[in-house]
Amino acid sequence: MISCLVVDDEPNAVKLMEDHISKIPFLQLKQKCFDAFEVMEYLRKETVDLIFMDIEMPEMSGMELATVLPKNQPIIYTTAYSAYALEGYEFNGLDYLLKPITFKRFAQAATKVQDYFALLKQPVDFNTHDVLADCMFVKSGKQVVKINYESILYFEANKEYVNIVAAEGHSLVYKRMKQLEMQLPVNFMRIHNSYIVNINFMQKIIDNHVLIGDTKLPVSAGYRDKLLSFIDKKMM
């Protein structure tokens, strides 16, 4: 069972979310809040697996509230404005529901959440590097796929997913880049908020780009010094 909290300053919106949640067998509504301060007060004493959070609220917006919540608190944002979508994914957003929220769209988000929590409960812990240190297992769709580290060219962030680009093809997995980066062997290097590369496949550095095969990947200013320091140590 996935416990939920709903926060929205509009009572009708809260009622709609309550109705939607009641129709999903694996969701359990634990609390309804009507502003950010009610949420903070509740979470001082309790925890929930998931928050359905309105973005446009008086005094403190959903985005602002997200910055004071635990870093790994899963959130699904709700709003009447699609312009917030990309920003929402930067604040623990598992999904983004555009009002008026149909049950069909809500059910899709619920399924995504169920997959997310199922993935977290997978028995193999890749933070322990003494287990299967030469490969990783990822859930892609309904499959669990084994990928050898030596075949991975690079990782590319795609909203709340990561695209693993390997010699044998692509795999799209539900994972955050920061979590992934901590699990990888030392031959993988972050060069951009959206890219982690396998330095074994790095062929050239051209201006602010890394060349891997025929693909040019950008190097952002925040990661450039680390990359150049690595190159200097290998310079002949």
Rank of each mutant, 00 (worst) to 15 (best):
F52S: 02
E156Y: 06
Q183M: 15
K146T: 07
S151P: 01
R190P: 04
A83N: 11
N148C: 05
C4G: 04
L132P: 01
E38I: 07
K226W: 02
M177T: 04
A167H: 11
E150A: 13
F155C: 06
L5I: 09
V113T: 12
L184N: 00
V186A: 12
V144D: 00
L69D: 09
F37S: 11
F155E: 00
I75D: 03
S3C: 08
A157T: 14
E64P: 09
I164W: 02
E46I: 03
A118S: 14
Q28E: 14
T111R: 12
I206N: 11
Y84F: 15
A157G: 08
T128G: 02
E18P: 00
C33V: 03
L153P: 03
M57D: 02
I164A: 04
A83K: 12
D232R: 15
V6D: 02
G88Q: 05
C4K: 01
S140H: 12
A167E: 15
V145I: 15
S194H: 07
P218L: 06
V210S: 07
R176M: 12
R105E: 13
Y116W: 11
V197G: 03
L29V: 10
E38H: 12
E156I: 01
I101K: 03
S151L: 10
A107Y: 14
K234R: 12
V14D: 00
C135A: 13
M189F: 05
G88I: 08
L27S: 05
L97N: 00
H129V: 06
F37V: 02
V145P: 00
F126R: 12
L132M: 14
A66V: 05
F26V: 07
A167C: 08
Y174W: 10
P185T: 00
I152F: 04
L29H: 01
Q122N: 13
V210P: 02
L29D: 03
M235R: 12
L65M: 09
Y149V: 05
M177F: 06
A166H: 11
F34V: 01
N200A: 12
I76V: 15
E59I: 11
V210Y: 08
F34M: 05
L132G: 07
H20R: 01
D125Y: 04
G62D: 06
G169C: 04
L217H: 09
I147C: 08
F117Q: 10
M177D: 00
I212A: 03
T79K: 06
Y174H: 15
E64Y: 04
D130V: 14
Y96I: 07
N127P: 01
P123Y: 02
N127Q: 11
L132V: 05
F103D: 03
P218F: 03
L119A: 12
F230Q: 08
S140Y: 07
A109D: 03
E41Q: 12
E87C: 00
M1A: 14
M189H: 02
Y174F: 14
M189L: 13
F188V: 08
R176A: 07
I101Y: 05
L69S: 08
D8A: 07
Y42I: 03
K178S: 13
